[in-house]
Design a protein around this nucleic acid. Structure first.
Lengths: 226, 226
DNA sequence: CGAATACTTGATGAGACTCAAGCGCCGTGG
DNA sequence: CCACGGCGCTTGAGTCTCATCAAGTATTCG
């Protein structure tokens, strides 16, 4: 199977611009300096097995974390959007690669710095702990989707997830192409395309353009849920 | 689809025997009193949605944590064996049900107690944090298996996992029946059975009895890896 | 011995993958 | 302005894997 995206092997440009404070609506308010990075679409931020010196927060754009299977297929674990954290590890190394889906801005935080802060700041500690547990719950959801859902269920769940995260309830702007969707859902690009076409024929969605999906019948989409 | 195991709806008998200290090879040495519970096979310890007042450690036997899908199927998230912790949640409720696969002894620890201890004991805190992250990594592995592996790959991975956890490298004693294996791997009972039979014909394994698997050719099993 | 349970085996079919074209959009260059 | 590719996406035909339905065997237990 082919992965359609040509990904340069070299590192993304690590242009250090300015340290900025870290804040998030649900994260405890505290100060930690990070480095702003800009990535062009399809740039790799780090690979599987790279030393996990930093973790990251998305400022703009979409990042995918993924792993490559021995047979050449690719599994996308998650799409990270503005405000999301990713790349935090227990072990020394990154278990997943991270790549830019679109042009992105991310902030890199030193992991060492965090670890000392966790000891000092109890609320921060709790927040990270609960963040880890939430990630785990999401991983379980995803595993259920991957393992047990039909193609239609997968695509429906994906659309609803993207709609939840987007601005509008009915108009979903997909930042990623069909191959990324397929690799996220454990399907082929053809099956994703066919399923979307089928949904459009059934007037469950409309597809004014490939990347633009209008949810016409949320109810039916939700009923497809596992 | 049917779930073959008849599970009584009522709670397992919560016979409080004696508070015992909690220790684990990799867990930091500290004292926390728990309550010993004995469960007979197929007893439910808690259901999805039950308030998560306790978390647990397996002393003997095997516990499965699982969730039930709207169409009646069941997804087993994990099998927990002696020494394993399970049932720890961020939110108020258990997201998965826990049931005894075999007759079991488990220790129940109050969650409240833990939370105060986490604040006081830094090492304990770290241990739990890393435990959560490890669980997440495992959830990802499992999701890869469920989503991308063939039936043969799933069964091979399962056998190797069970062998790793058991005493012997070559003789695996399965505590669970075929339906549990199927629900863990996202397969049907027939496919599991057929795959095992096929592996036996190929002399990759031997099946002196349904629950006893001899790994004859680990290499081939490992090559089936995703 | 009979019945229930657990497991195995066989036949068939549905759903998703593979391979192969075909379409449509966009940027480039004549 | 239009021809030409390239790329992303769609569509079609054939194949394969695994689920489903349906028996059949083995083991245990009353």
């Amino acid at each position: 199977m082919s992965v359609s995206l040509a990904i340069p092997a070299r590192q993304a440009s690590m242009g250090a611009l300015s340290p900025i404070p870290w804040s998030s609506p649900d994260a405890p308010a505290f100060e930690m300096t990070g480095t702003v990075l800009r990535l062009t679409a399809d740039r790799r931020l780090y690979a599987e097995g790279d030393e996990a010196r930093c973790f990251y927060k998305v400022v703009s754009g979409t990042i995918r974390t993924c792993q490559f299977l021995s047979d050449g297929r690719r599994q996308i674990d998650a799409f990270h959007q503005p405000g999301d954290f990713f790349g935090f590890e227990v072990g020394a190394d990154h278990r997943l690669a991270a790549e830019a889906v679109t042009d992105c801005t991310v902030i890199a935080y030193r992991r060492r710095g965090l670890e000392t802060m966790l000891i000092e700041d109890d609320r921060l500690n709790r927040w990270f702990f609960s963040h880890a547990m939430t990630c785990m719950a999401r991983a379980r959801e995803h595993s259920l989707l991957l393992g047990r859902a039909s193609a239609a269920q997968k695509v429906a769940a994906f659309l609803l997830e993207m709609a939840d995260r987007g601005e509008s309830d009915t108009a979903v702007e997909l930042p990623m192409g069909r191959q990324d969707v397929a690799d996220y859902l454990g399907l082929t690009i053809e099956t994703v395309s066919r399923t979307l076409s089928h949904m459009e024929k059934d007037k469950v969605i409309a597809l004014p353009s490939p990347r633009r999906v209008m949810l016409k019948d949320r109810r039916t989409l939700r009923e497809l849920n596992i």
